[in-house]
């Protein structure tokens, strides 16, 4: 994969697992921000929930010495994404800023990308999405509604990235670190999530990514993900 040019952004995220309390505020915020279809107990039983970011729980030990570890898993925006080469219609590709973009209009719904994602972060619209009254009034106008038959996934809130860039351009200033906050990052009460430009060596996320506590999920697969998980004594 070609490395990003120095002047291009390379959006990345750092998630501090020692701070994460598993409250799932990020999940709720993502649902609200990105017009996700509602997941019900019925759809959960069928294995058809939509959580662009989900919190995986890992239990260690036996009662009463049980430890729970929480891990928010979202699209890792891999630099070498396994989902990209397998789409027969080029509906998913990596854009110039390192985001793995999903083009809803182009997707024909073969679901090969969803199979090939080792993090299982891609979701398929089995039906036309419906929202119980009055949730359809809550939709974010910056985010499109996906029709039945297309794949969707976390976009690092690309609409917020675009909005921040437009605002910066309008104000005549360069984009500063911390200007862009995806919904999950913004809503985390423990401030466990940091988002920024990995290509900017002075950004907070780049510093955290360089720290000794940073690892990436299943990086041995060669996907080069851009979400860094920070944990003690990694």
């Amino acid at each position: 994969m070609a490395e990003q040019e120095a002047k291009n952004h390379s959006w990345g995220m750092a998630i501090d697992l020692d701070r994460c309390t598993g409250c799932e505020a990020c999940v709720a915020a993502c649902h609200a921000e990105n017009n996700l279809p509602v997941s019900t107990p019925d759809s959960a039983a069928k294995g058809r929930t939509f959580h662009w970011i989900r919190v995986d729980r890992y239990y260690e030990g036996e009662f009463p010495d049980v430890k729970v570890k929480y891990m928010p898993v979202l699209c890792q925006q891999c630099d070498d994404a396994p989902c990209e080469p397998v789409c027969p219609v080029h509906a998913t590709y990596q854009n110039a800023e390192g985001l793995n973009a999903q083009v809803y209009n182009r997707c024909v719904g073969t679901r090969y990308c969803a199979n090939n994602c080792p993090y299982t972060v891609r979701f398929f619209n089995w039906f036309e999405p419906e929202w119980p009254e009055p949730l359809q009034l809550q939709h974010n106008p910056d985010v499109s509604i996906r029709p039945a038959g297309v794949i969707e996934k976390c976009t690092f809130c690309v609409q917020r990235i675009k909005r921040a860039k437009l605002d910066a351009m309008h104000d005549g200033r360069p984009l500063a670190d911390g200007d862009v906050k995806p919904a999950c990052v913004q809503s985390c009460p423990a401030e466990a999530m940091v988002f920024g430009d990995l290509n900017d060596p002075s950004s907070k996320v780049a510093a955290l990514a360089r720290s000794g506590r940073a690892t990436r999920l299943m990086e041995e697969l060669g996907t080069r993900p851009k979400v860094f998980y920070l944990e003690r004594g990694a």
Partner: peptide
């Protein structure tokens, strides 16, 4: 998922700058 768009897998000339992915 969207069978009515199956023809996008066929390389035909078009005005929309779309083309199938021969790596798939």
């Amino acid at each position: 998922g969207r069978v009515w768009r199956f023809y996008w897998l066929i390389p035909y000339p078009n005005e929309r700058l779309i083309w199938p992915n021969f790596r798939s």
